[in-house]
Structure formats: structure tokens, C-alpha cells
Design a protein around this nucleic acid. Structure first.
Lengths: 193, 193
DNA sequence: AATTGTGCTTGATTAACATCAACTAATTAG
DNA sequence: CTAATTAGTTGATGTTAATCAAGCACAATT
């Protein structure tokens, strides 16, 4: 279960076998069933989480009960409520397993200690953050520049691995449109083969 | 001109006076006139830039010539095309001075060397990236959850310092709406005092 | 001070998307 | 295996924001 984690780290920075072994020890493996909540908004988010297996979503709930998906995370991705994890604020996001999932949890203290202990870890996390920024900017441009249909076609082309697994209602929420609109878009697209 | 930079760093991590002096030396001061382009899309973005004075915007231009603002950066903020700066890709963003501005430029090599030289610098940049991620997520929620009018009211309330200085056309672009729509929204809001 | 442009506004019309309601298909629980 | 939920679709209608076109106001340029 930790193999995927070590592989992901080594894609970005070097780790000796000894360091890799140390690294692993900081992570708590945990399994979640489909539909199980990993984090409830209002709680403190105690972990930075690596997805070893499965698919999750993070989302907010507005005053009218409407859900708004911020992120999908599948194998190899990280997920957390960053504000809560880093600053100890109440979480604003819920995190739910959309499939049976296996996570590796890192606590704040664990992260600090890891950074102190292994030279390349801080670098790894900085690179991770940078990539995350570019992905978020890409997402902003998606809805800022394109119509709902164009945005849908783009995500399906660029990240089919995630969006072919996610339920349509959550994809609609991610795009900021209603399930009805997404359904009509898909019909249009299908009609044009 | 460097004082503001050192103050910004020391808000997040500790620096000895000696380190601060070393730190400063890595930055190239440069002035830009209002309307001057700091970066053209298609070029390589050579610098991570700290705004000592002034106001800038980064934006993309689509196939129809439409502009889409990604970021405003005022005093104390950083701005760059991250993909281009870090990976050496062609820049996708243009960066333009909206006021006469003073910037402090850090090259990629400079950044690497700084990180090697001063212990807390990597940590500073990691924290900076984390805050940037939270800001980008906040922005995604803004347009995902709220109508154009609600989004406008929110940014004016939460970041009046920036949005009272930026031209309305660019605020509209930032929100993903047309200048006409923003004009009508402002009229509505004004009518209700 | 006159001129040219640019930024912002206003009105009329159109297009995109939301909402509400009813229905069908697919999952899940008993 | 069947009933009960939940997810997705479809249609009719309403709302929001985009587009097109014209005008005004302010700034920059001469």
C-alpha cells in the first residue's frame, strides 16, 4: 500500500532506500468504504492524505444545501482541507469516498518531523504545491474562458481517467452547472458522435 | 525598495540580519511604467517577481482576442507565470503594469541558490505556495457558488484594497463576466445604496 | 483648447443556463 | 428477487448574463 506513495515521491525527488523506509513509517494506512465521509466540514482536518487506491471528492455545502465540488482525488493524488490542516481552522470542506478507498494519512506533526528528518521532503512538498497551483489556475481558466459544453469536453479529454469514474452530478457541480444542463450537453455531444 | 520584501519574508519565517542582507542581493530591482508589459505570452518567464510598489495583472488572451485576468498583484504580492518560470515552458500569461510599478526580480537560478544558502527560504516559499492555493480555491468557490452580483460584492468587501484600484473592465474579466454586465450590477447595487 | 481614443454606460435583443416537475434507468437494501 | 432509493433524463418555462449597437465621459496627445 505504501509502494505507490514512495513511487510518487521518487518521481519528483531522490530518496535513499533508508529514507524511503523512514518516510513510510510516518503514514497511517486507513481504508474507507464508498460513501463514507473522511472529513466533515466544521471538524479540524488532522491529515494530509495520499490516495493509494480509490476516488474521493472534497466539496462545500452552501446555505441552501447545495454542494460544490472543489477537487477529485484518485490514486497518486493528495487531498486535504489545507486551511484547516495547516492553520488548525475549522474545515470548510467535506471529503467523501466515492469508491472504496485506501488512504495514507500524515499528521501535521508528522509532516514537520519528516521535513526536519529527510532533506528532500520539503522540496517535494513545495513542488507538489506548485503543481497544485498550476492545476487550480487551469481550472479557473476553464470556467472563465469556456462555455459549459467546451469546459466539459476539455476535462473529458484532458483527465478522462478521473471524469469517467466520477458520477455525473459531481462533475456538474465541479463545472458549476446543474445536473440537468450536463445531461443536455452530453446528449448534444453524443448526437454529433 | 527592498525593505518591503524583507518585511514580507519575516512575517512568515525568521531571518538573521546577515541572511536578510544576502537575500536582498539576489533580487534585481526594476521599474515599469503604467501599461508596460512585464511579460509577453510566448516568451519564457525568467523571473519570480515581488511587487514593491504598484499594481499589475496577469492574463491570457483567447483565440478571439478576449482577455481573461488570472491575478492582480499589488504591494507585497508575488507574481509570475509559474509553469514557465519553473519548467521553462513558453509563458501562457501576459503580465502588465496597471500603475507605475517597482518590482524585485528573482531568477530561477537565484531561487535555487537562495534555497541552498538560507535555511528558511524553502519553507517560506512552501508557505507562500500554500497560501496561494487557498486563495485560488476561494476564487473558484466564488464563481462556482455565487451569482455575478454576489461574487462582485464579496471581492469588494474582502479585498477592497485591490479592487478599488483596478479598472472595471479587468474586474469584470476576473469575475468571468462582460464589462456591460458589471456596469449594470454596479448600477443595481448603487441604487440600493 | 481641440482631437482622438479609451473606458464605462445604457438599451434592445439573443443565447445560455437554471428551475420545476415528471419520468426512466440504475443501484442499493431488505 | 423485489421494493425502495438514488441518479440521470427530458420537457416547459423563467432568469441571468452575453451580444450588438450607440452614446457619454473622461484621459491622454497635440
Amino acid at each position: 500500500m505504501h509502494d505507490r506513495l514512495i513511487a510518487a515521491i521518487r518521481q519528483k525527488v531522490n530518496l535513499t532506500d533508508e529514507e524511503a523506509a523512514t518516510f513510510e513509517r510516518f503514514f497511517i494506512p486507513r481504508k474507507y468504504r464508498k460513501r463514507q465521509y473522511v472529513l466533515n466540514a466544521g471538524d479540524k482536518c488532522q491529515y494530509l492524505m495520499f490516495v493509494a487506491k480509490g476516488l474521493l471528492r472534497s466539496f462545500t455545502v452552501d446555505d441552501d444545501g447545495g454542494e460544490h465540488v472543489m477537487q477529485f482525488a484518485m490514486e497518486g493524488a493528495w487531498i486535504t482541507d489545507m486551511g484547516s490542516f495547516l492553520s488548525g481552522d475549522d474545515a470548510i470542506y467535506n471529503i467523501e469516498a466515492l469508491e472504496d478507498s485506501e488512504l495514507l494519512l500524515l499528521t501535521r506533526d508528522g509532516m514537520e518531523e519528516l521535513i526536519e528528518t529527510i532533506a528532500n521532503v520539503e522540496r517535494y512538498f513545495r513542488v507538489l504545491m506548485q503543481n497544485s497551483i498550476m492545476a487550480l489556475q487551469r481550472r479557473i481558466r476553464l470556467t472563465q474562458m469556456y462555455s459549459a459544453e467546451e469546459a466539459y469536453l476539455q476535462i473529458m479529454e484532458l483527465q478522462p481517467d478521473i471524469f469517467n469514474r466520477a458520477p455525473l452530478q459531481h462533475i456538474a457541480s465541479y463545472l458549476g452547472i446543474t445536473p440537468e444542463t450536463l445531461s443536455r450537453i452530453r446528449k448534444q455531444v453524443a448526437k454529433r458522435e
